[in-house]
Simulated assay, not measured.
Amino acid sequence: MNIDIQKINAIAIEAGKAILEVYNDEQAASSVSYKSDNSPLTLADMRSNEVIVAGLEKAYPEIPVLSEESADVDCEVRKNWDYYWCVDPLDGTKEFINRNGEFTVNIALIHKDAPVLGVIYVPCKETLYYGDANGSFKQLTGEDAVQIKATEKPDDWVSVGSRSHADGSEAEYLSAFPVTEQLSAGSSLKFCLIAEGLAQIYYRKGPTMEWDTAAGHAIALQSGAIMQGINGEAFVYNKLSLRNPGFVCRVPFEGR
């Protein structure tokens, strides 16, 4: 599949602009509804989703789109997809509501059960991360893209965890690795920290959905990191249930 990742980058940036229009309007930003699972939904989620779906359907009409805001596609239909877009139009809705700027736009291309391309845009920082078979890159607005790589280290690892979803089992799991420092970050930014070598491990017991991880998975993978289930199993997509099991994203360690 021949995909021009720059077209996807442009769509993510446009979606980020739509989010910021809401974010910078205090009245609009404070308008929050809740889905059936009690997860928050903002006007920014919906506007970003409209931009992304329209952009992807125009650029690549032959590739179906699975988005958090339109995820009710029957598995009997999904299982026949060779390629599809996996989209989170606003990852880190709680960060958006809390106004800490740590929210992202996530777009990934899935081939069968694996992500092969990922784009993450951070609207408040005007920072773009993306990765495909050519490697992973970071680009600030108005600057050239710079290739990024996960940093393998024998010791003094930095772990990164969720700002909004900390888990008590994290310390026990991380004790098997040479972690000496811990950071917290919102949304898919945790994958970006791994990909650019600022952290070496991200453990998450759950829960997450496929659109939460797909873009970050692709970027981390193409930077040289590993993404797997907590017990070392393959971490796959287009499952019967779109809910993910626990996972760890990390750099290689002593042959593992």
Rank of each mutant, 00 (worst) to 15 (best):
G229M: 01
C192V: 13
S31T: 13
F96V: 11
L240Q: 10
E95V: 12
C86E: 13
K239P: 00
A171F: 09
Q222N: 15
G168W: 06
N98A: 15
A29V: 08
L117H: 00
R47M: 12
E57P: 04
K58H: 07
E196R: 11
S223R: 01
I120Y: 02
N231Y: 02
V116C: 10
C124P: 04
T180D: 04
Y60V: 06
W157E: 04
E254G: 10
W211P: 06
R256Y: 10
K94C: 11
S30Q: 12
A214W: 03
K205P: 01
A15S: 13
S175C: 10
E181S: 15
P207G: 07
D88Y: 05
C124E: 13
N100Y: 11
A145N: 05
N244V: 06
T93V: 09
M227P: 00
G255H: 10
K7S: 09
G135I: 06
I120N: 10
V105L: 08
A59V: 08
E196L: 01
P123T: 09
E196S: 06
K149H: 14
A28H: 09
E152I: 15
M46Q: 06
D45S: 07
G186A: 12
T141Q: 12
D156H: 15
S223L: 04
I8S: 05
D82Q: 15
L189N: 14
R243S: 14
E126W: 00
D113I: 11
S223M: 04
N106S: 14
A176M: 13
R163C: 11
P64E: 05
L56W: 00
F103A: 05
G135C: 08
E254L: 15
G55Q: 04
S159H: 04
Q228W: 02
Q139T: 08
P40V: 11
C192M: 15
I148D: 00
M46R: 09
I97L: 11
A215I: 12
A133L: 11
Q228L: 07
C86S: 13
I63Y: 02
A234N: 13
S187Y: 03
P123I: 08
V119K: 01
A18M: 05
D113G: 02
K205F: 07
V87H: 02
L198H: 09
V158M: 03
E143T: 13
V158A: 00
Y83P: 12
A18I: 01
P252W: 08
G118A: 05
Q228K: 14
A195D: 07
A12R: 05
D82S: 15
I148Y: 00
N2S: 10
V179T: 10
L242N: 12
V251A: 11
P123W: 03
S162L: 07
A176L: 12
P61D: 06
D144T: 14
V73L: 07
L43V: 13
